[in-house]
């Protein structure tokens, strides 16, 4: 048995995106970006606790928990939190 196979018998967790499932289902309010007002400063991505906002400042709604920090911290107030419909 090789060393690698021996190690495989142990309970090893591997890095996976979405380790907690699709956390987007937790959301009550959804962030909606107004591209007219946005000046691409990137503060929303800086403050996002879950790193769901990418370089193009697109929000990954599969994982966004809807905390609203991005909307609260946006200097141009370009993000609005809209209630999710059932």
């Amino acid at each position: 048995m090789t060393a690698l196979q021996k190690r495989e018998r142990l309970a090893i967790s591997r890095p996976t995106g979405g380790a907690a499932g699709k956390t987007g289902t937790w959301r009550v309010f959804r962030p909606v970006v107004d591209r007219e007002k946005c000046n691409d400063c990137g503060l929303c991505a800086t403050y996002c606790p879950d790193a769901v906002i990418n370089d193009e400042l697109e929000i990954d709604l599969n994982f966004c928990k809807g905390c609203g920090i991005c909307a609260n911290e946006c200097p141009k107030k370009a993000i609005e939190m809209v209630r999710e419909e059932k």
């Binding site: 995106g17 380790a19 959301r27 503060l43 800086t46 879950d50 928990k65």
Partner: peptide, 24 residues
């Protein structure tokens, strides 16, 4: 902001509460 590397070592998504400053 430009200086901070883009790599994320905390992958989306953890089971932290919404608005958790621990994961931030």
């Amino acid at each position: 902001i430009a200086e901070i590397p883009k790599e994320e070592y905390v992958l989306k998504c953890t089971s932290a509460c919404a608005g958790c400053s621990d994961s931030l």
